[in-house]
Amino acid sequence: MNDAIATDLPFSVSQRQLFRSLAGAMIPAAPSSGLPGADDDVIFFDILCASVPLAEHVRVALSALQNALEEGGDINAVAQTLEPEHVGLFVSLVVRCFYRDERVMRSLEMEVRPPYPGGFEVEQGDWSLLDPVRERLPFYRGVK
């Protein structure tokens, strides 16, 4: 849960609108499977909050995107032509927040909880698979 409110966020209205358009284009909603898009209210607010520590970089990247869009073209296609650090910033922020959304996690059949403290069960597996390896003679290089 974020404690931030919208007016705390260091982005202008136009910057937020542009970022939201990009997020929704990058990961669109899939109504047939009940999946939100990354421009969903809850997810996009999470994206904005996650962007605060990187606000200066985000503003620069959004400015580069805005300039590139003035030449025209689809926002996804244009965004992917930006400098790699801008692309990486957008993708990492959008993906990180989208895939921790409760609705998305449920759709992936994940338990909606952090790993700690409950942890997970990982099966031991079939240790007899080691039998042929145990039969090998030592093959390391010994000290002379």
């Binding site: 990982v122 099966e123 031991q124 597996g125 079939d126 698979l129």
Partner: peptide, 12 residues
């Protein structure tokens, strides 16, 4: 550590 599903697959 446990082999798990991934370890078994790769061991095979």
């Amino acid at each position: 550590l446990p082999l798990g599903k991934s370890g078994v697959r790769l061991a095979q």
